[in-house]
Design a protein around this nucleic acid. Structure first.
Lengths: 197, 197
DNA sequence: ACCTCTGCCTAATGCCTATAGGCTGTGCCC
DNA sequence: GGGCACAGCCTATAGGCATTAGGCAGAGGT
């Protein structure tokens, strides 16, 4: 496809994004620059334009990786589980992924990526997993949306605050997260018990 | 203090940050640049350095505004309320502030502002309000921390997702948020009923 | 009236993105 | 086996931004 052998291996869109993801996860999303990635690849900056569509395209590539990686992690974590068990596994996988790939996760939250069909589809694949997880508490698809948003908000918020060192108190963050998940389950139980109020 | 009258009013640290906040809230935090703010003020870029400490200082100023503004909004909203009533008012004020000041809110989440005493103190003032709000469900200060983190995560996550157009489904976001708040209350009730499990 | 100081300015540097156009080696085709 | 076409790297260049250095003018006190 786009692989040449000479002794020195040459570039490739995938390899460029690989390098960018590495920078993003190591030094933060804002630290990603074309010149930095080019330097990491041992190449001059303009050469990257043959593989990605400028800085915007590179960032989009990182975001797509983040979204897809998170989606598969979530899917893998919840396979064969249901109810509170599935929700807990989902939550742990979510937090774990964000902690391991802070740059890619942050990239996926860029607001300038709206109306991007491929990205939206990738996000939806992840949300389908969560939708399936909350189904035991709410059959109706219309109302599931609100539950999905609620759970997603809690997880996303925790993960963002944790990544941004937003938790100043010395109390254990693991413990806080475990409580958060338990409270989500309790909330869903209460919701179902009340018949979807 | 730093106000001169000539016919043309001159600069001031406060005025510079004012202009920056206006840009941030209108065009997004990432759109804030020294050159843009200088242009908005009818001034050349280097002139700003007499009032703020470069781009970093300007961003910090925006963040501080966001944190303090949010804190006072939260305090005002919860005065004279308690229990579920207070939590609902807190949540509504939180979301409302973030929606009205997206740039300042985003600025307040920058990860590069750790170990900044003044900022931390401002954040703590806001968190004290939330601490007081959850007190009816948990007296113990150690364990309050986890509840504060949980509620804060849910609100922060919702607000961030909403600001980033993360909710693709056409379902009402107001309704989702109202449910989120109700579920937080239900979760806290279940927590208290179980004696802090 | 002068002197100082505050606070604006111009000038210049360096890093970044982005575009245009040249050069080289690979692999195919004759 | 030799030339031809092309992929993919390169240099050169332009323009935007942050940042620093140093000049200049007006306000206010003495």
């Amino acid at each position: 496809m786009a692989e040449r052998i000479k002794g020195r291996v040459t570039l490739d869109a995938g390899r460029v994004v690989d390098a960018a993801v590495a920078v993003a996860d190591a030094d933060g999303f804002d630290a990603v620059s074309l010149s930095g990635v080019a330097a990491a690849l041992g190449v001059r900056t303009p050469s990257l334009y043959h593989h990605v569509d400028g800085l915007g395209g590179l960032r989009r590539g990182i975001a797509l990786r983040g979204i897809e990686g998170l989606g598969t992690a979530l899917r893998d974590a919840t396979i064969g589980r249901s109810g509170a068990d599935a929700l807990t596994a989902f939550a742990d996988a979510y937090r774990d992924y964000a902690a391991r790939h802070p740059g890619s996760y942050a990239a996926a939250q860029r607001t300038d990526l709206v109306d991007d069909g491929e990205l939206h589809a990738a996000v939806d694949r992840g949300l389908q997993v969560l939708r399936a997880v909350v189904r035991p508490w709410e059959e109706d698809e219309e109302r599931q949306v609100h539950l999905v948003r609620t759970v997603r908000s809690a997880l996303h918020g925790f993960v963002m605050l944790e990544a941004g060192h937003g938790f100043g108190m010395p109390a254990s963050r693991d413990e806080s997260f475990a409580l958060l998940v338990r409270l989500q389950v309790a909330a869903l139980d209460a919701y179902a018990a009340a018949g979807g109020a």
